[in-house]
Structure formats: structure tokens, C-alpha cells
Nucleic acid binder design. Sequence first.
DNA 1: CTGAAAGCGCTAACAA
DNA 2: TTGTTAGCGCTTTCAG
Lengths: 360, 360
Amino acid sequence: MGKVTLQDVAKAAGVSIATASWAVNDNKNVRIPEATRRKVRKVADRLGYHSNALARGLARGRSDLIGFVSDGVATSPFAGQVIQGAQDEAWRNGKILLVVDTDGNPTIERKAFAFMLEHQVEGVIYSSWVHRSIVPPAELDRITSVLVNCFDEQGRFPAVVPNELQGGRTATQLLIDAGHRRIAFVNDPPISPASVGRLAGYRQALEESGIEYDPRLVIAAGADQEGGYGAAGAVLASGATAVFCYNDRASMGLYDALRERGLRVPDDLSVVGFDNQEVISAHLHPALTTVGLPQYDLGVLGVRALLALQEPGADRVGDDADAGMPDAVGMPDVAEPAGPPYAPLLVACPTVMRDSIKPR
Amino acid sequence: MGKVTLQDVAKAAGVSIATASWAVNDNKNVRIPEATRRKVRKVADRLGYHSNALARGLARGRSDLIGFVSDGVATSPFAGQVIQGAQDEAWRNGKILLVVDTDGNPTIERKAFAFMLEHQVEGVIYSSWVHRSIVPPAELDRITSVLVNCFDEQGRFPAVVPNELQGGRTATQLLIDAGHRRIAFVNDPPISPASVGRLAGYRQALEESGIEYDPRLVIAAGADQEGGYGAAGAVLASGATAVFCYNDRASMGLYDALRERGLRVPDDLSVVGFDNQEVISAHLHPALTTVGLPQYDLGVLGVRALLALQEPGADRVGDDADAGMPDAVGMPDVAEPAGPPYAPLLVACPTVMRDSIKPR
DNA sequence: CTGAAAGCGCTAACAA
DNA sequence: TTGTTAGCGCTTTCAG
């Protein structure tokens, strides 16, 4: 079984091996009569021929493989989505993803890169579980690479990250639009792109609406249920009528604390979360209005940036590889590969309207 | 840069290309002096040599690639873990995973298999997001394959699945051990390995403790927060002092409903969940005692079964590939590849003790 | 338009 | 112990 080679096909079809090759691939440099092509194709199908990617890669010097190394995306509840997006976009371009999750282990990471190199990947997506600044491992210099959900301060590599500022602004704006003026922000204390960016967005939204920023409304609390639970007292004491929580998990904790005090969302307090972590946000009572992370898009744009890098100025040609693939519409175009230093590509965080905001 | 070949290394080291090959790989058929080996190795390092996996695969007729096709594991909040387990185990054996998530789309699935075939994978893990019975796609017959988190009724393929019955029994036993005799079971209505298996486990545990099974204690409710929320009334009306919920999400809904009625877990009602969906279970108030799904192990055992299939009777040899890898201890051995029909390998569901059970 | 033939980088007989 | 060499299956000039 199995081992049907091009040679077999050629022989069975009564053509040379070269002709068979032309016929099977839609090679544009060579014009082959439709009849011949069809015949070869049919024979190939009948024999169950599958081109050997190893041989093809060797001969062409191109593997059609894209590496995806992450420090935990696969394990994180979040970000299977970014892999999915990357995979879909890779696929659309006739590439396939070689995924390795290093779980943050440097030994594994080193090996992962060795593997990628050996397998002649055309580039690698280096991705982080949590949006953060990284110092790129030395291996990245040996391969065309782009950063996803992380970035290097020097901008030595193209990076694709969520637009935290816009996200924070959007979340806050939701509350303002509902008529709230006194809006608390439960923020994660450690400095991070997310905590800094969302706070900046919060302030920007307030400012745009002429609401004065009151530092007492910014409450520091851990970015999980316990944090949100513990922050309830401070939120209530602040006199806020609405609260923007750093993430959905904190919102969930806040819900709990509120319920224990006999208070109701959104009647007594409007709340908006962040992350759109569906298991939580979609199923809280009431369902949580929140701002999502553009994970799928991060993946898509990551590989798009990577491909743009290796074919400078080349137009993407649509082949039939996308049959049945979800279409990626409404996504920002990736900037022309301008060369370093690269400014991170900021991807918009979408609004997810549910039932936790009450107009007043 | 980059393109350093074995030939280059050989030349630079002043040996033949064959010798270089022996030296770089730890080939056991050929003994070459440590000195030569070391020299070659050093030159290789200096030049930044990386063996070309495509050429190696072609020449050896072996790709060291294992396919992993899933209908949504990557997207599901659950099961990045199974990929992780599969990847780790593959790695330990010098293999690497080629992951494709078809998202349940048959067109994509077909293409995924074509890709796998082309890339000469040595076998494929076919995995489902939710534990279920499947009819294996025809392509599986062309490749050595094993099913993970799913199975075919005829046992034509080895399958690795969670032991739902044991899980259900364990969950119930937890409650019994705490002194409860009247234990409700909030079950998911649709027939599935999980609903059937967990119910059987529930009944078995009761029986083993001489508690009579009362059908009125089995309450049908959707397997999510809404379901658990809605089931509260029935649970309370049943007079149960404890409840085993089909999953953590339902438990979460139940928590909500209870709190709204001024009732407390575990004082007024003990509860145990299922799935150990950490975002939820670990952070509920009080934290939820639950039974986990052995996802990581499913992945590990899946590839282990696959490898066992292709090297019948061969002992696994530990090479140095596992440096820095998490170790897989305490895992059941995969059964000898007995040949079809295969009985599914049942993997134990672990207990996760937290704070939602109160002794009485 | 089609065939012959030279590799792609590496492995593994087979010789030396 | 080491070198020579014939492929692995496919792509792609270069002739025909």
C-alpha cells in the first residue's frame, strides 16, 4: 500500500516523470495540454498517489512549513484560538504549522528551535501566553520570525499584539454611554502591557467625555476571582455606579461578593469585564458584557506578517487552498515590511455586549 | 547564512561525508573513535550545522513526524492539555507532532489527511473535543492510527478514553465518604459516554455502600451554568444533602442559584463537580471539589499506543531526548497491541479535593 | 510540448 | 575504522 511514487504514475499514464510532475502541480511555467493533464491526474487518483512532501521540499529547497513556538498557548485556556488563526492563515497559503509548546522551559525551547531549523521551516511565529515584553532568544536571528502577543523593546522583530489601550477605552466608553459618570476600574497591580494599556484607555475615555479622573476609583486587585471578590468593598465604598474589571475572572469574583451582600448586577452596579473568557463571561448571571482579546486575529496576522516578510512586495495570490476555510474579513492589513525597527501591529479588541450594564 | 551541509562539515573536519554522518548521529552500528567524533562535532557546532530533516527523512524513509488531527481540541478550553501530553511523549521518542485542527469541517479534515500523507507521518492521532463514539474517516485506514477521546464501535482502531464510570464512582464515593446518604446527581440528558458512564459510576458507588438507588435523585439538566442554575429547585426539593454535578459549569450555576436563595456551599449542600475546569472550579467560593479529566495522559497514552503499534514488541529505549521534559509517571502501561478488535484503553479520572464537601 | 538527466542533503550498503 | 557510491522522490534546467 501507500508507496505510490510519481514514477509509478508516469509509467501508468504513459508519460515521462517530468510531464507527470507538470501535470500534477499546476505549474504555470509550462503549458501542458488539458487532455494530458487530465489523464495524468486521473491515473494519480486511481493509484492513490500522494506527493512526497519531503522529496518535494528537498528538491525545491522549500518546506512549506511554518514554525509556531509558544511558551504555553496550547495549555492556556485562552489561546488555542491564536493557533487556530495561525493555522487557518497558513493553510490558506499552502503552508502548514509545526507547533511546539515549550511551556516556558528554556531547554525545550532550545530544542524546539533546533527542530524547526532541521525541518527547514520558512519562518517562525514566537508567541507568548500573556501579552508581554520579551527578550528574543538568540535563535530567532537565524530564522525569519515574528512575535505574537509579545514584543521586543527594540523592535528588532515584527510583532502583533492586542490593542490594550483601545480595549480599555472601549470598555470604559460602554459604561459612559450608558450614562455612568462615576466608574471604578479594578486593575491588576503588576506593571504589564495590559494593566498599563487598559488604564490608559480608561483615562482616555474619561477625558474624552470630560469626566475628571479620580485616582481613588482605580482599585488594585489580583487578576482573578479572589481579587475581584476582595475588591468589592472598595468598589462599593468608592461610590461608583459602574465598574470596569481588569478581566472576566475578577468580574466573576466581584459578582460573588456582590451577591453575598444582596446586591444585584446590573441594577446595583454595572460591570464590564475583559478577555471574553467564554466559559465565564457568557454564563454568569447576568451574562457579562466584556471586551474580547483578538486571539484568532493575532494568529492570522502573525503568519500574514511572516509571509509578507519573506516575499517582499509580492501580492498574495489566492489559490484553491482556502476551500472551506473560514474567511478572515475585516482584519487590518499587515503593514508593509518596513524593516527594523518595527512598530508592533496593534489589533483591535472587540466589544461583546451582554447583560451586565444598566443605563441610568 | 544557514545553509551548512554535512558535506561542508566533512570537508572542514577533513573526513568523508559518511564519517561525518556517523559522528553526528550516534549510530550504534558503526564504532568510530571518540576523538574523531568529537572533532566532527566541534566543527559542526562551529559552522552552525543543522541536519536537514527533509533529506534525512527522504533517505531513511522515515519522517519522525506524527500527525495529530482534532475536531476542535485546540479551540476547546479543555484540551490543549491533550496536545501537550501528545507532544511531550512524541518528543521523548524523538518524534514531532504535526497538528491540524479541523474544527469539525470535513473539507478541512480531508485536506488535513492529505497533508499528513504527503508529509509521510508515521501515524496519526485522531482526537475529538468531546468524548464520543465516531465513525472513523476512510483515510484512517491508510495510516497507522489511534483514536483519542473517542472510539469506534467496532474497535477497528486502538482508542484511549477517560474512564467515565470510575470518574462517576469516585465523585459519588467522595460524598459517601463524607457521610452523605441522600445524594443527587445532576446529569446531562443526551446519551453520551459521559452521561451514561458517570451515571453508572454513581449507581455503582451507591450500591457498593448499600445505599438504594432512587431515580428521583437523578435530575436532568443542561451541562452548563444555566442547567445547574435551573436544577437547584429540583435538587433542593429532592431532600438531598449532597449533589454530584455532571460538570463544573453546572456546579457553577448551582452555586449561583443557591446563593440567591441564601444557601451556602457546603454547609447547606455539599457539591462535587466534574472536569476540573480550573478557571471555574479552583476559583468558585468555596473552591469546588471535582473529578478531573485525564487530558494530558490521554495525549501521552495516545502517542504511546501509536508507537507501540508500529514497533510491535519493541522495548522503548530511553535516549537523551527527554532532558528537561516533564516525566510521565504513574501512568498505566499501554496494552500490548493485541490487534483488532481493540478494547478502548480507559484512563483514570483523578480526584481534585477542594472545599465544597462538608462531612455530616 | 515532452523527455533525459542533474541534483537537493543525507543514509546505508559495500569496499577498501 | 573510514571512504565511495548508489539511491530516497521530486523539481527543473536543458535538449529534443
